[in-house]
Every structure is written in C-alpha cells, then in structure tokens.
C-alpha cells in the first residue's frame, strides 16, 4: 500500500478538537490492527503471537506493550494486535506462518476502527459520562482494557502505557463521527470543572 494512496485515505475525521475542553482530545492516525482468535491454552498459538508481536500474552482485560506494538485481551479466545499501519499484512502473514499448526484466525482490520485519545486529569470523568465503568484510580490503571459502551456505541477503552491519565477509545469506524462529537460534548470543561 503506497504512501500516495495512504495520503488519499480519508482521515477518521477532522482531527482538530475545539477549544474549551477540560481534557486533551485527539483523533489518532491509522494503525495496524489485527483481530486474532485462537486457543490461549495452545502453546504453539501463544508463542507465535508473542514472537510476532513482541508483546507478552496479556492477562484478562489487560494490554501489553512492546515498542510500537500492543496486544489487547479482547475475550477468552480473541486478541487485538496494534502496530505500524504499513506492517499489518506482514504481521498477518507472520502469524499464519508461525502458528501454522494451530487452529486460529488472524485478520487485518486496520481500516475498520477509529481511535481517539482522551488524556488529562479529568479524562476518567469525561468517559464516565457515557460508559458504565468505574474508571477511578485504583479501579482502572495503566494497561487496563475494558470493552463496554459509550452512549450506545460499542467501544474498547484502554489506559495506555504513556501515563496514568491517558485513555485510547476505539469503536467501529462508521461510528467515528458520532463518537467524536460525543467526546467533544462530554469533554466540555464546564461539565468537568466540578468533578474530581
């Protein structure tokens, strides 16, 4: 996939957040995303995933990080691998090769989701305006992952390794505009000033 074509790709949205927000909000550029399904008790499968991703196998509802890659526990038989956009097909091929002996599925879904970053001391309160999740310190920390809903949109929310107040929120791409607008509304500094 050539650079020129990538430049033509429609960004998830106009990624400039308006003024007056109580947190930092950004739409993230495309990244490699792989849906990986397999038997977590299958040593061959697990070692293939760890070798290709460089990440250690995450615990339940956790994400692990290694360089530009991160590996997310999505369900008892599903992982999500984040990495460099241009390497997605290579990652799929490498997984298929290394886990050839296992019943598994690895598929490139790098174009299927929108990702937003919400960061700042009030970020957890902004997300809790729509997600029925306890984001309090002590309940939700670095590397924690939660699949839930924001309003009625299915989302995944990860606290990244960057710092303890940075969340990445992802949803199916078609809901991106809606979720972006929702986040802008929920991150209004006036709706956060009296919280926390």
């Amino acid at each position: 996939m050539s650079e020129s074509n990538n430049a033509l790709a429609r960004a998830p949205r106009d990624d400039t957040a308006p003024d007056g927000l109580g947190v930092q909000l950004a739409a993230m550029p495309l990244r490699a995303m792989l849906t990986i399904r397999g038997d977590f008790a299958d040593a061959g499968f697990v070692s293939a995933v760890e070798a290709v991703s460089g990440c250690t196998m995450p615990d339940v509802r956790k994400a692990t990080f290694a360089g530009n890659n991160s590996l997310l526990w999505m369900s008892p038989d599903e992982l999500m691998l984040f990495g460099d956009y241009a390497k997605a097909d290579d990652l799929v091929a490498a997984l298929n090769e290394k886990a050839a002996g296992s019943h598994m599925l690895a598929v490139n879904v790098s174009d299927a989701r929108a990702v937003f970053k919400v960061s700042g001391a009030k970020a957890r309160y902004a997300l809790a305006k729509g997600a029925p999740v306890d984001f309090a310190q002590g309940s939700f920390g670095t590397g924690d992952l939660r699949r839930t809903r924001i309003a009625t949109v299915a989302t995944g929310i990860v606290m990244t390794a960057e710092d303890p107040d940075t969340f990445e929120v992802f949803c199916f791409r078609s809901y991106g505009t809606y979720l972006w607008n929702w986040l802008i509304s929920a991150c209004d500094e006036n709706a956060l000033s009296d919280l926390g």
Partner: peptide, 10 residues
C-alpha cells in the same frame, strides 16, 4: 468469561 462485573446495559 471476562471477569467484569457490569450493569445490565452491557
């Protein structure tokens, strides 16, 4: 399956 304790809307 995922250990979450969550409200019914999920």
């Amino acid at each position: 399956c995922c250990g979450v304790e969550a409200e019914e809307t999920e």
